[in-house]
Simulated scan of single mutants.
Amino acid sequence: MNLTLKGVLAPILAANPCPHTLGLRFGSYPLDVRSNEPALIAWLADYFRDFLRQGGPAVCEVLAIEGKPQRLHLDYQLKEPEPGKTKIKEEWAALEGGRAVHKRLTGMAFLFGEGLNVAVGPCLENPNQVVNFINNRFIEHRLNEGCLLGHAAGVSHEGAGLSLAGFSGMGKSTLALHMMNHGLHFVSNDRIMLGRSNGDLMMYGVAKMPRVNPGTVLNNPSLASVMPESDRAAFKDLPLEELWSLEHKYDAFIDTCYGPGRFDLEARMKGLAILNWTRSGGEHRVAPVDIGQRRDLLPAFMKSTGLFFESTGDLTVPDFSEDAYVEMLSGCAVLEVTGRIDFEKAAAELAAFLRG
């Protein structure tokens, strides 16, 4: 007999009432987070301070239950690591009515389906995993409306947006933050949803603060406040290659670094810039391409929906093929950035494109 999502969740929910509530709004998407732990709600309220909602009904509810590491004794399948990675971090189990995902390194468990969305485990030790789960509910909502998922950062100017994609290590988030120095607004750090609205191509971002490495911080004065002076002293004289390869990360809050009101979650998409440059490349160049003829660039932008997406509605599987991306991008300017990596020059050129 198949286990049901509701059956697995029943004893967890009965033992863990969640009276503490946080109201959020991602664009036109109102969402409530409830928890048994007030300290977690306080942390999330600070993190999502640009997206707080006071009152009104929510269309989605997420429960974040603080507790011990969970495995739930389910028949999990291992999720193979992404290309270039070796460590297996996730496993998942299909349930009648939904899915369970277990984080092997942290003991966090996430169960969702049929309107239920529950994170359970050591949430206070892993609040960014709770943030990702909350944002994944919004991503799933947009994908079920017909959007495609892009692996990209995004910026905007007066409602017009530019997505920034790139092959691994190309620095799309770093470039987005350099572009913010040109008076632009931030739309997203690592995920963009593309969809049509009233004939316009729209890009929708995710309410997640960029996590930046020391090289990004040291080369962007606007980010100075995110790095302690002790770290600055330790990192400032490192060789360039070593500096950019450090795994150390800092959360860069947009309002702290650039001022209030600079984080938008949607824009009309004016263009897609694909970073295809190297540190030892030749002359820096930004040039338009026909994405239908340059499908070799699509893998830099296309993003798998992953374990946290469940299609709703009828039984038709959404089309996330290359053809679907080419069609969605038809009529949108696509730019390829080649040559030597130069964040300041690219930021200036792409900001000028966006303002033009």
Rank of each mutant, 00 (worst) to 15 (best):
N198A: 15
M170Q: 15
G169A: 08
G146V: 06
L246T: 10
T216H: 09
S173D: 08
L184F: 05
N198R: 15
F186C: 07
A160V: 12
L148N: 09
S245L: 11
D200N: 10
M193I: 01
K236F: 01
T174Y: 05
A152N: 04
G183R: 07
G199Q: 07
G205N: 08
P210M: 02
N189F: 00
I192C: 12
G161W: 10
S156I: 04
A152W: 01
A160C: 13
A224C: 03
L162N: 11
L240C: 00
G161V: 11
S188F: 01
P239S: 14
L177V: 07
S156T: 08
L218R: 08
E247D: 15
A207Q: 04
H248R: 15
V226K: 02
N144D: 14
L162G: 09
M179V: 08
L177M: 13
M209C: 10
N144F: 08
T174H: 11
H178N: 12
A234Q: 15
M202D: 01
D231E: 13
G183M: 10
P221Q: 10
G150Y: 01
L149D: 09
L194C: 00
N220H: 14
G154Q: 01
A160W: 06
L177T: 13
M202N: 02
L162Y: 07
V217A: 04
M180A: 13
A233W: 04
M203W: 04
L246M: 15
A234F: 12
S222D: 13
M170C: 11
F235A: 05
V226C: 06
H182F: 13
L148P: 08
S173K: 08
N181Q: 14
G169E: 09
L175M: 06
D231R: 08
V217P: 05
L148T: 05
S197N: 12
H182N: 08
P221D: 09
V212C: 07
C147K: 02
L243W: 13
L194K: 01
N189I: 02
W244E: 06
L148E: 06
A207Y: 02
M179R: 09
S225D: 07
L218T: 03
Y204N: 07
R191V: 14
L184S: 10
M193P: 00
L201K: 01
M209P: 03
G171N: 10
Y204A: 02
S188T: 13
F167N: 08
G183E: 09
P239C: 12
L243R: 13
L162T: 07
H151N: 04
G205L: 07
S188Q: 01
E242H: 07
L162I: 10
L218M: 13
H185Y: 08
H185I: 05
T174F: 03
G183S: 08
A234G: 05
Y204Q: 06
H248F: 05
G205V: 06
H185R: 15
G183Q: 08
S245R: 15
G166H: 03
N189K: 02
F186M: 05
H151C: 01
V187F: 03
S188H: 00
V217K: 04
G154T: 00
I192Q: 07
M179F: 04
N220E: 12
V212E: 03
R211H: 13
E241H: 05
N219R: 09
D237W: 01
E241C: 00
M179G: 10
V212Q: 03
L218P: 05
L246D: 13
L218V: 02
R196Q: 14
H151F: 02
L243K: 12
